[in-house]
Design a protein around this nucleic acid. Structure first.
Lengths: 199, 199, 199, 199
DNA sequence: TATGAATGAGTGTTCATTCAT
DNA sequence: GATGAATGAACACTCATTCAT
């Protein structure tokens, strides 16, 4: 029993460190983010951070993978709720864009890795695997909508890639705060890009 | 006269260093790219690099600005050639996407800066100024097309932002080689996003 | 009574740690031998090792002293068995060289200390005290042999030092395995050096 | 020409560092000898030491090899001078023991390596190669002396090993200062061990 | 008694930058 | 103008040691 409690405690602390890492790495980059910065923000000593992660590189890996699974869970959702594809797509886009505006550091960290993919080959591979999954998931939704003629008739996969690019591009190009009306427009455009809003 | 020749020589050497910097910084990031790496690839000593640029940071700044003006010249082109807006837009998208596939390091460097905008505030500002110029330029083109009913009727600025996001997102998400048929599809989608291809 | 049992248990555990320490310190040196290495090999946690020894330095001291008394008991033996000095000397040399080939780590640890005597002054002093005892003991044996003209006529103390040097030098210079015929030759030479074998 | 001068300057500086290293490593051991200690004693900064040697380990290697060649030149001398083997042997022993008393750190460094041979396998190998050479050289001298019946009749190689052990053992066991009359005795014994002084 | 958690002190190493030539 | 030599500042990482349980 004691072990369980301890284990839980360790996991929490570990997670705490990862969250801090996710918030710092994308802001300063890998090299400029020192372990002591992370430690300070997490309220512990440098040594303690290295007690939970064998090296800075390892912590970085964990932070990236954590971000990736978090994003995956936000972007690839299968809960149908509605059986109307058009409505499904609209909801999905809203959820994506909302997620975007709220999880900036996660996506920034992912972009940091992709941007320097030669330096982080395995992580990049992992990321692209998730991208493919997303494309798969999205094409399917688009096809369903197309069959019901609720969605513009295009090559579904091609459109899916375009939408993925759009989504990622937003977080590169847009710096508006969460509350800005700008985001409404981005949702409208997102729906247009997946081919919704026909009629 | 001698001074002129010297000046020219210096400018060439300076430019040489910048080009090397542009090729290295985005691959490894700022910190992992050492001055000596740049010097070696440029065929000179570390000291010489620092003779032309007061500091590593300064060289980085210059490399980014150089990339930015290069991209600006490729993305904001006013040469009309055709007076048909629809054709103009099609040509523009083709040029953009082609430029993308060929100037990867330039855009990667720009993204690197945006990604860590807190670390490079002035550079980011500079970049966003160019973005605004691009939006201005693009909205105008879209509006012209819309007036002639050759282009989908949307909020022109909103669409312009969507297209900008799309363009930038491509270079984040796509890793296909230049020759891949993939790029054809991306062009198709690009035209669709600006609102072209309306019957 | 319970205390006695406890005491015994503690002594055993303590001894266990020392034996492990003796096996590790000379192989890696003081600094490269971490407490956790010792703990792991002794099947306990780092903290437990430090429960039995106040500090790493202290453990090292104890390991050295333990080695020293062990060696002393092997090298300074007074059990006469034979009253024939020549035979005594022969037997002694055999025992010494045999001990050498079997207690390598003990002597290596001692040599480690002597080699860095400025770093371990008290331990070195302790070791040299034992050396002196050995010289005393040996000179006496040699003198007895010389009186009976069974042993070469030399300055007995001088010869004793030469023999001590020889014995120690062997463990520095020779790496032959225990079974090698080499050791036979070393015994022959040892006897010659103390001055035995005089017809 | 300039290059030659520079090269010379570098070599001198490099050698300076090595000499300091030889004086410090055996006193404190590898780990306890910090680069900054070496730098301070050599009158330069830590960085400068690492400018001449890629790593502490590398400096250690160089220091050991330097010591080894120095010792080799002192111990394996072929200059005959006299054609009388007995005299040659006497002179040799005198030179050896004198060298011993004067180059203490060199031999201590070598012993340090041998003592922890599992940690420094290549260096140890190098050292034992030199040992073999010494045995070869010495056996030959002994054999010559034996043929002229100036030297005790023993197995020459066996005797050579005994002498080598004796020599090395001295520097382990003896701490007398250079001027002590003790060393005279050690020379006498050395000659006796090689088998000289017959009649 | 035994141990896991936490940390501070210490060190090797990197690298931008300065300076003399 | 070009460069090699020198260095200080910074940082990741190790490990003995302390403490609470």
């Amino acid at each position: 029993m004691a072990r369980t409690i301890n284990e839980k405690y360790r996991q929490e602390k570990r997670n705490n460190i990862i969250q801090v890492a996710i918030s710092l790495f994308p802001v300063n980059g890998f090299s400029q983010t020192t372990i002591s910065m992370i430690a300070k923000k997490a309220g512990m000593s440098t040594s303690t951070v290295l007690l939970y992660f064998p090296s800075k590189e390892d912590l970085f890996h964990c932070a990236v993978l954590e971000s990736l699974t978090e994003l995956k869970s936000l972007f690839i959702n299968i809960e149908p709720e509605t059986h109307d594809p058009a409505e499904q797509i609209t909801k999905m886009v809203i959820q994506h864009i909302t997620a975007l505006s709220k999880r900036v550091p996660y996506l920034k960290l992912i972009h940091y890795v992709i941007n320097q993919h030669e330096r982080f080959p395995e992580l990049t591979k992992e990321i692209f695997t998730v991208s493919e999954e997303f494309i798969e998931f999205l094409s399917l939704m688009i096809k369903k909508g197309q069959e019901l003629e609720q969605v513009e008739q295009t090559d579904a996969r091609e459109t899916a890639w375009a939408y993925l690019a759009y989504i990622n591009g937003i977080s590169v190009v847009i710096t508006e705060p969460e509350e800005s009306p700008f985001w409404k427009g981005l949702i409208r455009q997102g729906i247009r890009i997946v081919g919704g809003n026909v009629i």
